[in-house]
C-alpha cells in the first residue's frame, strides 16, 4: 500500500457538449518519504494534476488516496506551493507565513507560533525581509516565502507546482539546492512538477513523464539512482546523468500518440480538379459541387 496513490483518475473541464479532456487514466503510487518529479509539456495538465492531489478539484472518475484514505477536499496535510506563489499582497512575509501557522497550530500558545513562523522564514533565508510585503520582493524571494508558508504547515506531502519556472537561471539553481537541502533534512514526501528534465533528475528519486495533452497520461516512471547529495557541476559530466536525461526526453517525445490533424474537404465527382486555394473565397466564387450528389468527402491525415 503506497502512501499517496492515484488510480484510474480522469479529469476534464467544461460542460458535456464542449468538454476538454485534460487527464486520462492516471496511475501513480508514491511511497512515504519519496521525492517524485513529474515532467510534462506546458498545458499538459500538470497544474490540474497538482490540484487533484491537493484536493482543490475532484476527479471525474478514479480515486486519490492518502495513507489509504480517500481524499475529501483540500487540507493542510497536503501543502501545495502554487505555481504563481499566491501570497496575499496585503500581508507581510511574516504575516503570510503566520496565517498558515495560526491555522494549523491553533492549539499552541502564541509565543510558540511566532517562534515556529520565524524558524521557517529563517529556513528559506528571508529573516531580513521579514516585514516586507510581497510587492517589494523579487520573484525568487516570493517563491521562498511560498515554500516557507507551506513547509511551516508541516504537511505530510509537499506538492510543488513548477516552483522555479518563472525564475532566472541563477536564482533557479540556488533554489534547487535549497529544495534538495530542505528535503534531505525533513524527508517528507515531495511531488515536484517541472518542465525541466535536468531539474527533475537533479532533485528526484523518480521521474515520471506526463505525455502531451489532451488526454495526457503518466508514462512509466524512471528511477534516478544517482547518489546524494548531487552536485550540479559534476552531474553535467556524469555519463549516467546524460543517459538518464536521454531516457526522460525520449519518453516525453515518444510517449502517447502524436496528435494528428485531419483535413476534410469536399471533392466534386466525376471531374476532380485540383483546387486553387490561393483564389479567395467569395460569395460569387464558391468552391463546391456544381450539382448535388456529385459531392464526396475525403479525409487526409497530416503530420503536425
Amino acid at each position: 500500500m503506497a502512501f499517496l496513490e492515484i488510480s484510474h483518475v480522469s479529469k476534464g473541464y467544461g460542460p458535456p457538449e464542449q468538454r476538454a479532456e485534460v487527464l486520462a487514466d492516471l496511475n501513480l503510487a508514491i511511497e512515504e518519504g519519496e521525492f517524485v518529479a513529474i515532467v510534462g509539456y506546458s498545458g499538459a495538465g500538470k497544474t490540474t494534476l497538482m490540484s487533484l492531489l491537493a484536493g482543490l478539484v475532484a476527479p471525474d472518475c478514479g480515486t486519490v488516496k492518502l495513507a489509504g484514505r480517500e481524499m475529501q477536499g483540500p487540507g493542510p496535510d497536503r501543502g501545495l506551493v502554487f505555481q504563481n506563489y499566491s501570497l496575499l499582497p496585503w500581508l507581510t512575509v511574516f504575516e503570510n507565513v503566520k496565517l498558515a501557522v495560526d491555522q494549523v497550530f491553533a492549539d499552541r500558545p502564541e509565543a510558540e507560533r511566532i517562534a515556529h513562523t520565524e524558524k521557517f522564514i529563517g529556513m528559506v533565508n528571508l529573516t531580513r525581509a521579514r516585514d516586507q510585503r510581497p510587492a517589494e520582493l523579487s520573484g525568487g524571494m516570493r517563491q521562498r516565502v511560498s515554500v516557507a508558508r507551506t513547509l511551516a504547515m508541516r504537511p505530510k506531502v509537499l506538492l510543488l507546482d513548477e516552483p522555479l519556472s518563472a525564475l532566472d537561471a541563477l536564482t533557479r539553481a540556488t533554489l534547487q539546492d535549497e529544495i534538495a537541502r530542505i528535503w534531505q533534512e525533513s524527508r517528507t514526501t515531495v511531488v515536484l512538477v517541472t518542465n525541466d528534465p535536468d531539474e527533475a533528475i537533479l532533485l528526484a528519486d523518480r521521474v515520471v513523464p506526463l505525455t502531451r495533452g489532451p488526454n495526457a497520461t503518466l508514462a512509466p516512471g524512471i528511477p534516478i539512482p544517482l547518489a546524494r547529495p548531487r552536485d550540479r557541476r559534476l552531474i553535467n559530466e556524469n555519463p549516467e546523468f546524460k543517459q538518464l536525461r536521454n531516457q526522460v526526453v525520449e519518453s516525453l517525445l515518444s510517449a502517447g500518440v502524436k496528435p494528428k490533424t485531419t483535413l476534410t474537404r469536399d471533392l466534386i465527382l466525376p471531374d476532380i480538379e485540383p483546387e486553387d486555394i490561393s483564389k479567395p473565397w467569395s460569395y460569387f466564387n464558391r468552391r463546391g459541387p456544381l450539382r448535388k450528389g456529385e459531392k464526396r468527402e475525403e479525409s487526409v491525415e497530416v503530420a503536425p
Partner: peptide, 27 residues
C-alpha cells in the same frame, strides 16, 4: 482564484476567509 485557493488549502473558516482574504482583496 489563487487567494481563494490559499484559503481552501489552509482550511480557513468562512468567517476567516471573509475577514482575512475577501475583504482585504476587495478593499
Amino acid at each position: 482564484q489563487d487567494y481563494l485557493n490559499v484559503a481552501k488549502v489552509l482550511k480557513l473558516s468562512r468567517w476567516k476567509t471573509l475577514t482575512k482574504v475577501m475583504i482585504p482583496a476587495t478593499l
